[in-house]
Nucleic acid binder design. Structure first.
Lengths: 232, 232, 232, 232
DNA sequence: AATGAATGAGGGTTCATTCAT
DNA sequence: AATGAATGAACCCTCATTCAT
């Protein structure tokens, strides 16, 4: 999104560096709580010079969102088009998603936290892109259900489970190399896809046991908001 | 400056109402981007009167965190002490957690997003409480592994999967009654606990197929950050 | 200055106690920087109740000024009327002044610092009273000059020297009993009255030496605001 | 947030002008009672622009204190090092002190009144500097006593008398040229040094007369706080 | 004799942004 | 390509005071 008509050769490089610094700061302190001054300081520029590169604070946010969304969507589209088993495609998509989460951790923080700070158009566009990404996953899950690899489920809920599992990772993972995308993807997919597969497993009487427990202990209220101090 | 020693009967009621309004606003716009003026306006009070009730903006944040953390932790402790199978206890905990997420949705938004805005002591205390909650889940998972109901897994990663699945729900669920805690808990636990159970399932050759795919298609780079524009 | 038409017996007592507490706080933190809340807290009253006793914050200031000015002026008038030597009367006045400074130290702080916070009428009245006090001293000094005990001086400057010496004491004296009014008065008067007395003393060539020093060292500039870094 | 790294040529000039205006206002109304808005108005700047120059309100106070303390201390050190008679040095110091009082009258008001508004570090530093200044005077007085020019006195009390006499001047002197530093210094030093000199003078029976007066008139209570309304 | 609640103006400070140079 | 200076709105918070009860 170049604004002034003509730029020198270093323009885009410096611009990208500023966005990097901004992502770090936004991730650490939040978009709203980070001042333009701090960004300028981190990038070694005065406020005035900063505006030559960025146009506005919200632009920075837009760019950071794009840096996550654009490669993610591009890769998701390519994976979706591969001519292999849908479960395998989901597994590849899982790893691609985790890969970007782990390597652009601060961008992801901003992406997950501050997308609601975007104004009208920017926000709409982002939500449309997220919708497309979710659609790709839903389609793959539907394919796996159609082929009998996964049991029949609410497809939207299955997609949401997939995203819950992956997208919340940014909250606790640290960029210290202790976790890598391949390992996490293996583990997540082992859990999810076993849980999604067709044959019922040995824990399937769990819901009956829940009901029985509630019948036998009607006095125990486990609703967190119901008080329940009586048993103390 | 401690709150005045005595309050009228309406004080606590109004105070709670203010916290409610603040939670709505913080959830919608973020803590840092919500002004004290807006909160006053939403509560029908002038700024001065507002401060008679709240003491400080951060206090509001603390109260909102407490309204999530206190009942959650209390219920989690009670469930952990029940003398039933650990898998059943995890299922009950799942439902309790989802119950609070669904019914205090805006509090959860704030809880998940803005805890980092808390200053020193408040933050430390909150993190300690979160640690305790995570410990309870870890212990239940460890019990289930010891009893052979779940296979041996990295206990921390299992706990994190459990929390990923549940805690990300606030991002997409709407308080419109379309989803209820019991249903979501059943579905989440069906997926997770089948995935966690001891016997390997029929998708266990997935990882071999991943490796094979990569061998056979070394030219396909699926790393989102590796460029990969060549195929465009 | 009782305001409500009828009071119970404890009214004036409590009122005086409030003024005491206010004087302490004003002395320690300054009038403008002390809040009504603090005064209420120190007096064990809520803000509302406080106003029942004091009427306004400025009223407190007026009362504190009066507590200094009224006894001081009354005593000064009595001393002035005594039929003894003016130097003796000055000595008695000195001790009376120091006595009130030492025993109402916090009132004096407020009296010296914050009289300029008084609004129109209150301020005018206070300045008139101060003028009367200064007049009493001036008259005594003039009497002493007329009688030949003191040499002829600018009477206003002599009075100002007398007041400088005494009134600045509050800045460094502590209410710990290390200094007492009698001792300080003896010392101050020994210095002042010897200095004021008629006969020139052995240091009277000092001014000549000052002039000679300046002639002999014209390059040494001792004016604090003249730079003078040259000699560094 | 340090001041921006570079400033234009007018920056320091404008900054000094702002400090001037602030000193006037602080002197007239007191530091705590003067608003940032007023300062901005007096300097012809909006609040935002004002902060570009000053950083904080307390900074202004610090600068004003420095403008008094720095030249005063520098000059005092230079005078102390002169190789002339200690009494002459005291006389030069007296004039330097009065010179700064008369020419920076509003700064002195602030210096004397509002140093207690300084926060921790700034206050500590200032008090240390005041201590050094007092030490210089004490040393000169001690030298004069050792050389026999002054009689033996409590050295701290002698220093305090010197400072009382000089430092209280700001309370009544007007910047109208009616008084000048040389004249005041001559008069003050004439009084003080004659009072301090070795030989006892003709008023030295004053204390005996005080005692005799009290014996002969035991019914006359001259303590300002002892009631004494009886004679009214 | 005292309270709890409210007001509204003002406190000091930081904000994102603009623009002439 | 970048700066220093300015703006003006908004920031969170505290103030002295009032008044029905």
């Amino acid at each position: 999104m170049p604004r002034p008509p003509g730029h020198g050769p270093g323009y885009e490089i410096k611009r990208q560096e500023i966005i990097d610094r901004a992502a770090e700061l936004f991730a650490r302190k939040g978009y709203a709580a980070t001042g333009i001054n701090e960004i300028g300081g981190a990038a070694g520029l005065t406020k005035g010079a900063l505006y030559y590169y960025i146009g506005s604070k919200e632009n920075l946010l837009v760019e950071i969102q794009s840096r996550v969304m654009r490669p993610l969507l591009r890769t998701a589209r390519r994976i979706a088009r591969l001519e292999v088993d849908p479960v395998l495609r989901l597994r590849l998509l899982s790893e691609a998603l985790l890969s970007i989460i782990l390597r652009r951790l601060d961008h992801i923080w901003v992406y997950e936290h501050d997308y609601r700070m975007l104004g009208g158009d920017n926000r709409t566009r982002l939500l449309r892109q997220r919708g497309e990404f979710e659609g790709i996953i839903s389609n793959l899950l539907a394919e796996a259900m159609d082929s009998g690899e996964f049991r029949e489920m609410n497809p939207r809920l299955a997609m949401l489970q997939f995203l819950n599992m992956h997208n919340h990772t940014y909250q606790w993972v640290r960029p210290d190399g202790r976790w890598d995308a391949g390992y996490l993807s293996r583990e997540y997919c082992a859990t999810l896809f076993t849980g999604f597969r067709a044959a019922p497993g040995p824990v399937d009487d769990l819901e009956e046991r829940v009901l029985k427990f509630r019948e036998q202990h009607p006095e125990i209220v486990l609703d967190p908001l119901e008080g329940g101090e009586t048993e103390a």
